[in-house]
Design a protein around this nucleic acid. Structure first.
Ligand SMILES: NC(=O)c1ccc[n+]([C@@H]2O[C@H](COP(=O)([O-])OP(=O)(O)OC[C@H]3O[C@@H](n4cnc5c(N)ncnc54)[C@H](O)[C@@H]3O)[C@@H](O)[C@H]2O)c1
Ligand SMILES: NC(=O)c1ccc[n+]([C@@H]2O[C@H](COP(=O)([O-])OP(=O)(O)OC[C@H]3O[C@@H](n4cnc5c(N)ncnc54)[C@H](O)[C@@H]3O)[C@@H](O)[C@H]2O)c1
Lengths: 215, 215
DNA sequence: ATATTCTTGTGAAGCTTTTCACATAAGCTG
DNA sequence: CAGCTTATGTGAAAAGCTTCACAAGAATAT
């Protein structure tokens, strides 16, 4: 099997398609064309078709794509047709916001463990989950069969905690701390960097930066 | 002047260089090579040099780049060597977290106005800022000379509020709602989509996705 | 049945971004 | 001060990604 590498952009666009399809489903569309899908996410029809073609043929010529069916297919491709057990480390400002966010659970990302090192927080119940002591991180991650770890701790301790997380056998980490973490090559690591987007806006304003698409 | 378009990736990497340089400065480095800079942000030395070369020549052959000086240059390129007046709409879970985040202000993004439509929140003081009524959004954005608006409102009302924001003459918007907003071509719009990163991790885990770089 | 219309799926072309590789320049050493 | 080492800056090549353009399949109309 020739497993051709799917680009990061394609995967991100799958998320967009999924989102658009969810909306289309609510609006009672049965089918949708690549043109309409493209319009809703500011892409081109060719891009939509090409992306989907990497994974199979889902459409009907002359008709378009079946909304419900395609949505289901994409959820299966993205792996969000199942429940992922997520642990969150650092129940501070951003951590609390994430725990309160119901949409994650709806998309299958279930936050089932919380960790902190603040004695005032440890043991307290936060949205139905008791905050555990970071000291037991490695063991508890294993015991709770956690698959994804979200880091919302200060940048200064992020690497240290990451090392623990990796030691616990976790293969997927989403990091909110503005620091580049070192992980072994078999661990998937993604960053959420809000300053970066603000800085992009700043750059655009200052430089009168031309936008990518002006269709 | 042939204003060659700078790619989005290059701009994002400038943010990374800036971050790395800040750290290097704290560690009392005087100069840094493209090799070291690359290593710290998991890039290649050639990439670093090429990115910087778009904006000028900052290094010294045989020596590397002067840390303080380059940091200053990048902050000027990114436009973060000044204060940006930012307004935040929607002081809920994520909005509150953003207001509490001191680093934004340190980087020049000063949140000076808060808006909400919740009567219980309007008028109350949140981290030193009185939450204003969304009803006065357009006027108050103008009067306060806001330059960047951050949206942390439910997806359902995001477009409606965006229209107001655009009417107020704002040219830069950072949106946290998982919805694609329509704005005129002269308005810079960026999205912060956390689900997307989780879904990327999910995809990677399910598909054993090869990472981009394995150096 | 046949024509007409619509829209997919996809090689190939076109464009962008990254990487390569090396001339060039600066510092350092003896 | 000559030779050596180091590391930048940058055209050119390579790789990667997007768009084009059209054959072909499917539905609908006549
Ligand atoms: N708040 C934001 O809007 C925002 C925006 C962008 C990035 N970030 C980043 O997200 C991270 C968290 O930010 P925040 O504003 O929520 O900070 P915070 O201080 O409110 O929360 C950090 C939490 O981590 C806990 N913690 C500290 N050290 C720990 C350790 N060794 N082990 C376990 N828990 C520990 C703290 O007790 C606290 O609960 C930071 O890296 C920050 O830079 C935050
Ligand atoms: N909380 C998270 O971790 C998280 C993660 C990803 C995305 N988001 C997105 O961020 C947005 C905000 O999420 P949240 O969890 O903070 O929600 P929230 O309900 O806690 O906050 C929303 C805030 O917006 C205010 N609001 C509602 N309608 C308004 C209107 N018409 N005008 C002005 N203000 C209005 C509400 O009063 C509330 O204060 C949502 O779009 C959500 O999908 C949140």
């Amino acid at each position: 099997m020739t497993k051709k590498r799917i680009s990061e952009s394609t995967i991100h666009r799958l998320s967009l398609y999924y989102r658009a399809l969810s909306l289309l489903e609510k609006e009672n569309y049965d089918t949708v064309s690549s043109k309409e899908l493209a319009k809703r996410e500011k892409l081109t029809p060719a891009q939509v078709r090409k992306d989907l073609s990497f994974f199979g043929t889902f459409g009907t010529r002359g008709l378009g794509y079946p909304v419900r069916e395609l949505k289901h297919q994409i959820s299966s491709i993205l792996g969000i047709d199942r429940v992922w057990r997520v642990a969150l480390v650092g129940v501070g400002n951003i951590g609390s916001a994430l725990v309160s966010y119901k949409e994650f659970a709806k998309q299958g990302f279930q936050i089932v463990k919380l960790f902190d090192n603040d004695q005032r927080k440890i043991g307290s119940n936060h949205k139905g989950i008791v905050i555990a002591d970071i000291a037991n991180l490695e063991n508890e991650l294993r015991e709770s069969n956690i698959e994804i770890v979200v880091l919302a701790v200060p940048a200064t301790v992020a690497q240290y905690i990451t090392d623990d997380v990796v030691r616990a056998g976790i293969k997927a980490i989403l990091n909110f701390a503005p620091v580049n973490l070192k992980v072994p090559p078999d661990v998937y690591l993604r960053h959420e960097n809000m300053s970066m987007e603000l800085e992009y806006l700043s750059f655009a304003l200052v430089n009168n930066h031309a936008p990518k698409r002006s269709k």
